[in-house]
Amino acid sequence: MIRDTAALPNEEDVCLQESVDSKAILRIIESHNGELGGLIAILEEIQAEYGYLPEKSLRIVSDKTGCSMVDVYGVATFYRSFSLKPRGKHLILVCLGTACHVRGAPRVIEEFERQLGIKAGQTTEDKEFTLDTVNCLGACALGPVVVIDGHYFSKVRKSRVSQLLEGAQNGFGKLQIEKDKRIFPLHVSCPHCNRSLNDETFTIDGQPSIRVTISSDHKQGWLRLSCLYGSYNFASEFDVSTETAVSFLCPHCGVEFTSTLDCSVCAAPMVPMLVDGGGIVQICSRRGCKNHMLDLI
């Protein structure tokens, strides 16, 4: 029932809610055809976008899917993976299942709590880390298990905690790229003038970046993409907001890369580039869309 202590959103929450982009949420809902059965999938995507479920987004979901606010809120509070409070940049999950518990997970979480200065379920003041517990990750033989930003760590001891925190801040993704054999560098060139787009003077992921010119809203500037196939790291001269599609041009001949294909995920035009050794790699021109295709001959 309605409690007397109706919590009013504090100022910070209001600011955060204003930053909720209703267009992005509408696009997520539309991609599920506004079906009620897709509610969990919709909420998952919103959570992936914002790191938590803002109140405003839940109201939009309720409006558009025709699912009542009570039901949406019920689902959002039922599942542990959904959070209604803003989370930090890095999410640390410590397994406290039976096996992890007897193998010493309580000591590990104590150490995390001590080093971060927060309790489980809280977020550090600088919004860097959120510490939470889970009840089982299904990897009991490897316990105690810790998951940081989707990376699993097995047989974690108290002494490894500080190393893990440091690793989280530097990004585990970068360390793993070199080890993963499925990620390989590409040398690409302009399909019009056939000159190489790889730029030795600017490196991303430790490899020469792919330099292109992008144009958006009458602004032109360089964009450097990682040449590692499978890496989405990039650098650009001016900031392109997510969800906008930009035109890609060759920095040598200035001709725009055009493709007959549209992105199968978001319908933005694809950008083709020739791969040395034969083949075409196509990437989606919308910022934030990770769709791409590689055709090797």
């Binding site: 029932m1 919590a7 009542s68 009570v70």
Partner: peptide, 13 residues
């Protein structure tokens, strides 16, 4: 528990 979403008065109440 039973209650309104976000513990604030519901628009439909």
């Amino acid at each position: 528990s039973i209650g309104t979403p976000f513990d604030i008065k519901s628009d439909v109440c």
